[in-house]
C-alpha cells in the first residue's frame, strides 16, 4: 500500500527520524564488516583498531533508535503499518548491532594475530565467504529501504550458500591444521572469523524476515534452506 502523509505531520517526522537513523546504522555496519575483513586479509592492525572504535557509534545508534521507537509507541500509539514500521526498526537495529559486534570481534582477532605465523593461501576462502555475506547485507538493507520484500526473500533464500561455504571452509581449515601444527593458532582464529561472517549472514536473513513482516503484516512461515551440517559446523539459530 502506498502511504500518504499523516494528518499529524510530526508523526511522519518521528518515523522519518527512525528510518534515517537506521539507514545511517546500516551504512556504518556495511563499512565495518568490509573493513574488518580487509584488516584480516591485509593484517592491517591500525584499520582493525579503527573498526573496534567505530563499533561504539553503532551501539549509540541502536540506543537512539530504541529510545525513539519507544517514545513513538508511547506518544502515538501506532497501529497497522505504523506499528510495523516501529517494530521493524527496533528489530533491524538489534540485528545491526549484533552485526557490528561480530565485525568488532573479527577486528579484535586481527589484533590478537599480530606476529603469528601465517600461511599466505589460507585467507582466500574467508575472502570468498566475506564477499558473499557483504553482498547479502547490502542487498537486504536496500530491500528494507525500498520496502521490497521480494528482494529481501531472495537474500533469505541465498543464505544456504553462505552456510555451505562455511562448512567447506571448516573442512579445509581442519586439513591445514592436521598438515602442520604451526597452522593451528592462525587457523583457529580464522575459523572463528569465518563463523562470525556466517553469523552476519544469519542476521541479514533476520532483517529479510523483518522486511517481509513489515510489508505483509505476517511472519515468514517457510523453513529457510540450510547448507549441509557436516562435522561440527553447527549453526546456532
Amino acid at each position: 500500500m502506498a502511504m500518504t502523509d499523516h494528518i499529524v505531520s510530526s508523526f511522519d517526522a518521528d518515523l522519518q527520524t527512525l528510518g534515517d537513523k537506521l539507514a545511517e546504522m546500516g551504512g556504518l555496519c556495511e563499512k565495518l564488516v568490509g573493513e574488518s575483513i580487509e584488516a584480516l586479509l591485509r593484517r592491517d592492525i591500525p584499520l582493525a583498531k579503527r573498526v573496534i572504535e567505530w563499533d561504539r557509534s553503532i551501539d549509540r545508534l541502536q540506543h537512539e533508535i530504541e529510545e525513539n521507537g519507544i517514545l513513538t509507541i508511547a506518544k502515538r500509539a501506532p497501529v497497522a503499518i505504523d506499528l510495523r514500521e516501529v517494530v521493524a526498526a527496533l528489530r533491524i537495529a538489534n540485528d545491526l548491532e549484533r552485526i557490528g559486534d561480530l565485525a568488532k570481534n573479527i577486528a579484535k582477532r586481527v589484533v590478537a594475530l599480530e606476529g603469528q605465523f601465517q600461511p599466505p593461501k589460507l585467507a582466500g576462502g574467508v575472502a570468498h565467504i566475506a564477499d558473499l555475506t557483504l553482498a547479502q547485507l547490502k542487498e537486504v538493507l536496500d530491500a528494507y529501504t525500498q520496502r521490497d520484500e521480494r528482494r529481501a526473500m531472495e537474500v533469505w533464500k541465498r543464505d544456504g550458500d553462505i552456510d555451505a561455504l562455511y562448512n567447506s571452509l571448516f573442512r579445509e581449515l581442519l586439513t591445514y591444521m592436521m598438515e602442520d601444527p604451526r597452522n593451528i593458532g592462525f587457523c583457529a582464529h580464522l575459523l572463528f572469523c569465518a563463523k562470525n561472517i556466517e553469523r552476519i549472514g544469519d542476521h541479514a536473513t533476520n532483517v529479510a524476515e523483518t522486511v517481509y513482516y513489515l510489508v505483509h503484516g505476517e511472519a515468514v512461515t517457510d523453513e529457510r534452506p540450510k547448507g549441509d551440517l557436516a562435522g561440527a559446523a553447527i549453526s546456532y539459530d
Partner: peptide, 12 residues
C-alpha cells in the same frame, strides 16, 4: 487501504 489510512491517522 481506506481502513489503514483511517486507523493510522492518514485520512483527509
Amino acid at each position: 487501504k481506506r481502513t489503514q489510512d483511517y486507523i493510522t491517522g492518514r485520512f483527509g
